[in-house]
Design a protein around this nucleic acid. Sequence first.
DNA 1: GTCTATAATGAGATAGAC
DNA 2: GTCTATCTCATTATAGAC
Lengths: 208, 208
Amino acid sequence: MDKPNSQEQFDTETRILRAARQVFFKQGMAGARMQDIADQAGVNKALLHYYFRSKDKLFQTIFTQAFQTMLESFKAIIASPMSITEKLESFIHVYISNMRLNPYLPLFIITEINKRPEVFPRQLVPEHQQVDLKKLFAQIQKEIAEGRIAPFQPMHLIMNVLGMSIFSFIAKPMMIHMLGVNEKQYEHFLNEREAQIIAFVRSALKTS
Amino acid sequence: MDKPNSQEQFDTETRILRAARQVFFKQGMAGARMQDIADQAGVNKALLHYYFRSKDKLFQTIFTQAFQTMLESFKAIIASPMSITEKLESFIHVYISNMRLNPYLPLFIITEINKRPEVFPRQLVPEHQQVDLKKLFAQIQKEIAEGRIAPFQPMHLIMNVLGMSIFSFIAKPMMIHMLGVNEKQYEHFLNEREAQIIAFVRSALKTS
DNA sequence: GTCTATAATGAGATAGAC
DNA sequence: GTCTATCTCATTATAGAC
């Protein structure tokens, strides 16, 4: 865990939420300890229950907000008036920036849904705020038809971009061990990542 | 959890190992319960301690073997006498096949190293059996120089392939919720995945 | 709202009979 | 080798003073 936040400027509830995010993101629901969260927040453990009643309720608060955050970066880009190439490059940029700030976020969401699928209702995301894939797909089809990009199935194209962007960050500890490189070397690699992915995608989408 | 294995044909130790793999892979070290493993194996809980002494020892056994498995599929491909394009496509094929059998494996390794970096020694992989990246990189550089594939940095090229292959599987629960699709639709998407990634990589590597 | 003390429970581990 | 019963401890949660 990092050093307890120098966050005396925040009220107790906020300090708990920030601390809970750090601990839950890294350790997950099962691995997190209420005492760790209290220490990290610099408050008494009993206060966590005073403000959030139970560990599970606190977790739900953190999880829901994390999921929304993840969703928002998706939707903002899709809705914007850009070409597909611009949108894809925007995806890459935004996700890599986010992963720099919050490397545990996607992994946290993935693993927690995995572990307790029953906890997350079928409609975790209400109908009206789901990602509007149809529009995006239509735009991709249109640009393909116009011969502006090479033909790939929209869903796969998007997954390719997400996979290349996100995986290299979440798999960092595994890759370091598998490849036998050190932290510094891997960080250097990650710094080049955005430019390299963009070049790769451009090359793939080039019409010949 | 799945139904208890109809694995009466295996001896007790094997049944425990198989059950432990299932439970640890899905729930992680912190989330797993010895009782769950015992139930899954169809044996008495005390036997887990008789055979493996502690939860931690049992976990170490499972983790180490999982990590070796992950490493082997890497190394086997790298060592084989194929062109880069063939090797990359072999990567894609092998990883997607493995993920079909064992969707939790990479996620398990990633999250457990994340949570307890101190547990895993710097040299989790002994020097002599590390992935021989140098050779692979040299081969890539050579094929680029010969104009057989477009120029990309070797490490990034490999990470692109791994990311596209692995991410779509490990992120399945997240994507299903984010995109508002159902399990069946996502499975259909995954079935097309191998061919789509190969097409994408070929397009990117094409020399113009 | 915040603290100390403590209850309640869950889960890993062991003893000892068979 | 396998089982039942039990010990021990960590952790969530609550009671009650301030």
